[in-house]
């Protein structure tokens, strides 16, 4: 009884956090229409990946031999390929690869970049020099070149691919986190935390990290697009996701090339989806950059 009363009369914050998130998100869509378009594209992409079996009219590997190389129709929205597989279904399932590799790689990248960047900025001195020289070394390799080479050594496969892309993306990312963490480190509240005897770990991950999060979100969004682009390039070259599983890059590769002049839809749709996905993440990243971190505005 008492609790109920206390509940009814107690002070309710003007907007509970759940509503604030909703309100801020809808405000974002209004303020940054291009970012909003990006968000919508990504939402559609995610739904496609999650509900692929419900959306795709056919299993992705089902052959319809009598319907080989057919143009787009009501039965096959995006046409069929050389073994009569429905391209629409393959594109829908292909979203899964892009989403899994994209989010997997970027999670790895965010984790490593945050730790490296913050540790490097916080300790400075020898630790910083050492980490930054290591970053220099990795940044000397053209990423696609070293990635194909690494894939040739460790072997193909979804998890190897995700890991390799994630590690590679983290290097440049850690530089941005470091720069951002350096700015935060100069603030008075860090000095205050040091004065009251907070441990290094606490300062780094309870005080600096939360203030670097906006930067991390922005860069991670753009990197999601980059990861999808890299994955599709590797799959296109034949060093990404191994065959039966459909990936957008893989659908454009190798044996298909012979048929593209007869069946251009085989090439048009998977590529259009890569472009759309990358475009979506870049647009969202731009919008978020303006909304979350004005300091990064105009940088890339």
């Amino acid at each position: 009884m008492l609790e109920e009363q206390a509940g009814t009369f107690s002070y309710v914050p003007p907007a509970s956090s759940r509503f604030r998130v909703l309100k801020r998100s809808s405000q974002f869509l209004v303020d940054k229409p291009l970012g909003g378009i990006g968000a919508i594209i990504i939402a559609v992409l995610l739904l496609m990946a999650i509900f692929a079996p419900l959306i795709a009219p056919f299993p992705y590997a089902e052959n319809h031999i009598s319907d080989r190389l057919q143009g787009p129709s009501l039965r096959y929205f995006f046409g069929t390929d050389a073994s009569g597989r429905d391209i629409f279904s393959r594109v829908v399932y292909g979203a899964r690869v892009s989403v899994v590799v994209g989010f997997g790689a970027v999670s790895i990248s965010v984790f490593i970049a945050s730790v490296l960047g913050i540790v490097s900025a916080y300790y400075g001195g020898l630790v910083d020099t050492l980490i930054q020289r290591l970053v220099d070394i990795w940044l000397s390799f053209p990423s696609l070149v070293i990635l194909i080479s690494i894939m040739a050594v460790i072997g193909m496969g979804l998890s190897n691919l995700t890991l390799a892309i994630g590690l590679l993306l983290s290097v440049g990312f850690s530089r941005v986190v470091r720069a951002s963490a350096l700015t935060v480190k100069g603030n008075l509240f860090i000095e205050a935390a040091t004065t009251i005897g907070a441990s290094d770990m606490r300062i780094m991950f309870r005080h600096i990290l939360p203030n670097v999060v906006p930067t991390i979100i922005v860069i991670a969004t753009v990197q999601l697009g980059a990861a999808i682009l890299i994955e599709s390039s590797l799959s296109f070259l034949g060093y990404g996701v191994p065959p039966p599983r459909p990936s957008w890059g893989g659908m454009l590769s190798g044996s298909g090339l012979v048929y593209f002049t007869k069946a251009p839809w085989m090439a048009v749709f998977p590529g259009a989806f890569i472009t759309l996905a990358v475009f979506g993440f870049n647009m969202l990243g731009d919008g978020l950059r303006d909304a979350l971190d004005p300091r990064l505005r105009g940088s890339r």
Binding site: S233, G249, L257, F260, G271, I274, V278, F279, M283
Partner: peptide
Amino acid sequence: VGMLAIPGFWLATLVITL
């Protein structure tokens, strides 16, 4: 932003095919 999103290998495929 669009130019950044188009994968080069797709553009190349289209330039050869279309």
